[in-house]
């Protein structure tokens, strides 16, 4: 079977899956999207930086209404990974305010999005640490 593909290109599927930020070589600003230039300093030279897989949940919402086809409820979260903020769903725990709380410690977790044309896609979220 073919190698699995990541849900997004900043998810690195090696032995220890992790997120990889794009780092401005001039000022150190970090991004997850494809860049034309640095929005902070205007620099156009970039490298990559691995993002810690452990973090703190600094904000969330439990989304009950979304577009048709998107399973609800789910927890949209913002995780502070040792100074780099990342978006991700909070997974592997019930989506309610008793189980998901501000300040909780979380870690990166991956899951299968299923298979297409013999290739599996892998997504990520954060689960309680």
């Amino acid at each position: 079977m073919a190698e699995p593909v990541p849900m997004v290109d900043y998810l690195i599927l090696d032995e220890r899956p992790h997120l990889r930020a794009t780092l401005c070589s001039d000022c150190g600003a970090t991004y997850f999207d494809r860049r034309n230039a640095c929005a902070h300093c205007g620099g156009t030279s970039f490298s990559h930086q691995d993002v810690p897989t452990q973090g703190t949940l600094i904000s969330f919402s439990i989304v009950h209404h979304a577009a048709p086809g998107i399973p609800t409820p789910f927890v949209a979260g913002i995780v502070d990974c040792d100074g780099t903020a990342a978006r991700g769903n909070i997974i592997n725990t019930p989506p309610d305010p008793e189980h998901v709380t501000l300040g909780m410690k979380v870690r990166l977790a991956t899951y299968s999005l299923g298979e297409k044309a013999g290739v599996e896609a892998i997504g990520y979220g954060f689960e309680p640490a």
Binding site: A67, I70, N89, Y124
Partner: peptide, 8 residues
């Protein structure tokens, strides 16, 4: 689609 997968 990332809506519902990496937040909302």
């Amino acid at each position: 689609g990332l809506d519902g997968r990496t937040g909302t």
